[in-house]
Design a protein around this nucleic acid. Sequence first.
RNA 1: GGCGGUGUAGCUCAGCUGGUUAGAGCACACGACUCAUAAUCGUGGAGUCGGCGGUUCAAGUCCGCCCACCGCCA
Length: 630
Amino acid sequence: MTKTFYVTTPIYYVNAEPHIGHAYTTINADFLARWHRLDGYDTFFLTGTDEHGEKIAQAAARAGKQPQQFVDEVSAKFKKAWEILHISYDDFIRTTESRHKKVVQQYLQEIYDRGDIYYGEYEGLYCVGCERFLTEKELVDGKCPDHGVEPELRREGNYFFKMEKYRAWLRDHINKNPGFIRPERYRNEVLAILSEPIGDLSISRPKSRVSWGIELPWDPEHVTYVWFDALLNYISALGYPEGERYKKYWPAAQHMIGKDILKTHAVFWPTMLKAGDVEVYRHLNVGGHLLAEGRKMSKSLGNVINPFEWSEKYGSDAVRYYLLKETPYGLDGVVSEEGLIERYNADLANDLGNLLQRVRTMVLKYREGVLCRREPGAGEAVVVAAAEGLAAKVRGYVRELRFNQALEEVLQFVRLLNRYVNEREPWKINDPEDLDRVLYTVVDGLRTASVLLAPALPVKMAELRAALGLGELSVADVEGWGGLPDGHKLPAEAPILFPKVESEKKKQSKYIPAKKPKKDEAATITYEDFAKLDLRVAQVKGVEKHPNADRLLVIRLDVGGEERTVVGGLAEHYAPEELVGKKVALLANLKPRKLRGVVSHGMLLAAEGADGTLALLEPGREVEPGSKIS
RNA sequence: GGCGGUGUAGCUCAGCUGGUUAGAGCACACGACUCAUAAUCGUGGAGUCGGCGGUUCAAGUCCGCCCACCGCCA
């Protein structure tokens, strides 16, 4: 029996267009879905849109549209957005679909029949202008901020779900299942919430006030409010309770959410499932928020990042890769376009893309595109060892939701392959068998990387495999070294995989000469500045070549009885024996600094000629070593 | 006010149950190489590990207090 895996994003509320927050959660979910498909799981990936509520009805009215037409349009924008980002969802649930409404009504009725829903009176501060209840927090000086009117105390009939009844059970469940809410910080937060009474949950609104919703089956004068409408999508899309999908994928569910909706998913949703006698989901995975310039994104700050614009400029894979690689899942992460370009150039263009290019060129040039499988030798040991454990390591990181580490692990392998090529220098190898061995090993490594990176870079890794003449592969195909068939042939042509991107900053520095201060014009300083320098005459006692640098000399000096060592870049200008005995000018109170392993206590003054030759300054008359220069 | 999180090289981040000279990538400098997308490889530099105090033979890593930012709750 194959293992099953079910992952969901939240259903997104259609009062806003798709933005980076939606994209981030969805990309994380897509990564998990794609990984599990490649790793042999029977996988189901669900996303969708949340389309009911008074806000939607109002937004539709403002746009001069019927609610249904309005939600159709916004929902389509989400589908379009996921198309741009290559989100591989298997189903897209909309809460206005009849398949969903049916389940919601059925589920509500079940719980009502069990006695966990009761009718009660809600009392609160109601603003007539807003046509809704306001919370204390929203009030400004006791008045509605939008209408400047004091809200009136009003009672309203609501149905309530007996949530408090399940609090103890939920707390117990979370305590017994450490991985239920991940990462742990959010688990602690939920346990804190559950340590105090959570009360019962208002789940309906009178239809007179909120018309755009799903009617309660036992009382058509009320519609269900948010929770039962939205959260049940996770099982309605599977065809609860009799659907094949439901039987197959529930409860092996992992919900991916942002930390802003923790409480609804960690408290409301599990108790709702428990009340319906449905087994609770497996994991709730909570992601952090993306920040721009270290702050929240907001329209007023004008720092809102649009991942869809980035996708147009750099490709959706680059955006996916960047968001997954740059920030650890669960924490807030700082992102920027500059950061994206850096990551793209360094990891994708230089390390990975260039490796493909260089090895392809060699295989075509030296071997007419044909690879021969040769058993690895001592020179391959490091690569083979790395390849053997790679898939398992990546799998481990993915399980822990450490997507950034999973990707970094593969990138380290790619860097290892580049190092391997430099060490083995295939362009110098004469032995044809050994040359085969090196080229095969590199291509096989790229083949492995292409699979393990595919969950982040689905489009580009397929292109990479095409450039190697390979088709779809699974994780099982890359568990270890040497899966590439003997005699495999590379296609003659392949485009550059990741063309390098020039950032705005770099472009500028290219055309505008760097504004380094010219050597011969320095800023004016005061005498006090100058007086800080301790300049001394010193006599050279001995000179040796620096053990680790061709250009440096290690010079022992007599500074008036005190001996000290200075390292200077003089090897190209003076022979060691030529210096001994010379009296020179020393900056004696320069902060000591290690130069290639030898500590230098000061610096010798020298003039630089137009051709770059250095001439040490020497006193014009006889003076004692240690004499002060001023 | 209570609870929780974060604070480690210029930047983005690793550092598990405390243990050799605190790491990686980017950026910077120098060197090597030429198969390659001015690429790759090597070397180098600095960090009072937010601050103070404590436990310990030993703390970035545990405890206490404090500071900054963030979140949840009130």
